[in-house]
Design a protein around this nucleic acid. Structure first.
Lengths: 165, 165
DNA sequence: AGAGTATATCTCGATATCAAGAAACTTGAT
DNA sequence: ATCAAGTTTCTTGATATCGAGATATACTCT
């Protein structure tokens, strides 16, 4: 089946036959798919009264394991937002009682963000919902295809994640 | 090589061994990669004094072919933003002289957005820069692998692009 | 023709994000 | 000890986005 990127690439080949636009076949699809996923996730999380950004922060802490705490700096590398954004997110989650800010005992510049029990429950519930939705989106692909896709994508993400980026 | 999603998935398997988190192997990579691409693109476009959103609108018009005009509604489906956002974008591009708003002769509710000659040049230059950067990012993949990746991604994007979504 | 529904674009208020810089603290070298 | 450089987090101001509703025009059916 054709998608919007097929149409986009065909248009470029008509308008700029001098250029090789093949890279768009991969990377424009990644960007557009991410945008669609954002919208779908927003809907899925709404059932749990969570915004996507709240989910990102809460699940980062949840994954850390007991006692469910990380520094704002560690949260930055997981969520790919700037420090100002993270400060703001932590403020709002703290106001809602989903996280708590504690002084870092080993570095007085630092802070630890800890998940509250309610925050933990909300994260766990929303994760189950997200996985159900994602399975539906991936439904057309076989297990083998999903594995291939994951491996190919890893080759693109690894440089960003490992080099300072 | 390992990436951040490998670590993320391993953490979930430790914390929630009851859940099957395999969907994240694909879709978390898509979201994170898109975020990295956004940042990289912002840098590439800065050399041409263009914001990513400006590039998106200008190139949509450029691809339409002479006389380089589309309705705001057509621009919406290409850029995946809301109508309020698009009105705002057109206003700002018009103020910079890169596009022009014309009445649609066949529908008096409608408007046509037309690319100016300068807008066209800027779009063409920025596209060349973007393609160079994307080739570098895709560098590790063979031609065959890029083709496989594009095909697998198309299976995920097609439903969003074809069903009203 | 007229009523009701659908479409196209714009307006407006609320909000999340970013970038840059400030403030507090730590680290390492002399 | 002290100083300079590095880090960690927060503050601030500007800006882009979204969502909901408003307005104007087009279409459809009787």
């Amino acid at each position: 089946m054709e998608d919007e990127v097929d149409r986009l690439v065909a248009a470029w080949r008509r308008e700029r036959p001098d250029l090789d636009v093949e890279p768009l076949e991969v990377l424009s699809r990644v960007s557009r798919l991410a945008r669609h996923l954002d919208r779908a996730r927003r809907l899925a999380f709404a059932e749990h009264q969570l915004e996507p950004w709240e989910f990102d922060v809460l699940t980062s802490l949840r994954r850390a394991g007991a006692p469910y705490q990380l520094s704002p700096g560690q949260l930055l590398t997981q969520t790919l937002v700037t420090s100002g954004t993270m400060t703001n997110r932590i403020d709002r989650l703290a106001k809602k009682g989903l996280v708590e800010r504690l002084p870092d005992p080993s570095d007085r510049r630092g802070v630890l963000v800890r998940l509250s029990p309610e925050g933990r429950d909300r994260a766990d519930q929303a994760l189950a919902g997200l996985l159900a939705q994602e399975r539906a989106i991936l439904g057309r692909l076989s297990r083998t295809e999903r594995g291939e896709l994951a491996d190919l994508l890893r080759q693109l993400t690894a440089p960003f994640d490992n080099i300072p980026g």
